[in-house]
Design a binder for these strands. Structure first.
Lengths: 153, 153
DNA sequence: CGTAATTAGATTGTGCGCAATTGAATTGCG
DNA sequence: CGCAATTCAATTGCGCACAATCTAATTACG
């Protein structure tokens, strides 16, 4: 593990930096890949992630959506309003606890899933790797993320 | 490629979605981890990435920085202006080709590297994995990114 | 030369992403 | 009951990120 070569520290530094660059760039690459595919659906990438969460299970509160996606209300509130304006979701206060806003899919929003499913195929092609490989990458990234989250309390 | 099992497609869909979520979340996790560490230096995370590139090699043009980081001038121009206002870099037109703007570190900017090096140690701890593991993650993420970039022409 | 095409940056407009603040609703505790 | 603390969402302000557009400088070509 320890090296005597004079450049050992530089190598580690570069590795950290390269890991940053890699994640940073990969996130943008995903964004750029999705963008043209989502444009016909009238969705941005973060909006698509919200819709994915709703297609999986409808009726989440803003808070739960925020926890799923790691976003706070400052990001979600305007985003959800745009989805509402697009007629894809409805926002209504929970009568039991009026602090909470429940997000539900409209018929149009639910119907969009069919088109969205076609996006998967294109993305799957773009990713262009085996299921096993994708699982491995996913798991190592999740592990990395968990460690980062834990390190920040 | 075609399957008869009813849930096979759902599994693939989830995998794609999970990979998206993972990358998306990991990028934010990095951002959140760096933010408090960079705040004493007066840098944001993207600004830090620009400084990393300059510490590695000073005197890049805006174009080269954009290629290294995958950012366009619409993002870099205001970012570099803020770094200039902070007194960390200087922007000057290349006399040979006045279309180009060369970014150089000021003394203050170069001096910041010492403090930034301490950030590495903290990040290294936060990442909390072996060099081999980090290399493996980095490489698989880079490979994924390359495929995405290639898929989008 | 001189005009067209190319290249480099800057600007504009939209949409995240997050910290900090605000305000309304609910809960807890005496 | 009554008041303080808590919870949830919305708002505000700042900084990316990118497409589209614009301006200025350089290069290519006749």
């Amino acid at each position: 593990m320890q090296k005597n070569a004079p450049k050992a520290k530089d190598v580690e530094i570069r590795l950290d930096a390269q890991l940053c660059f890699a994640i940073y760039g990969a996130a943008h690459a995903f964004n750029r890949t999705y963008k043209p595919l989502l444009e016909p659906l009238g969705l941005t990438y973060p909006q698509y992630l919200v819709m994915l969460a709703l297609w999986e299970e409808d009726g989440h509160t803003v808070k739960v959506l925020g926890e799923k996606l790691g976003l706070d209300s400052g990001t979600l509130s305007p985003l959800l309003k745009r989805l509402e304006q697009s007629g894809l979701v409805a926002r209504q206060r929970d009568p039991q606890d009026e602090r909470q806003v429940v997000i539900t899919l409209t018929e149009k929003g639910a119907g969009l899933k069919a088109q969205a499913d076609e996006v998967y195929a294109a993305i799957g092609q773009a990713i262009g790797c085996s299921v096993e490989e994708a699982v491995a990458v996913r798991d190592s990234i999740i592990a990395l993320k968990e460690r980062l989250n834990k390190a920040g309390e």
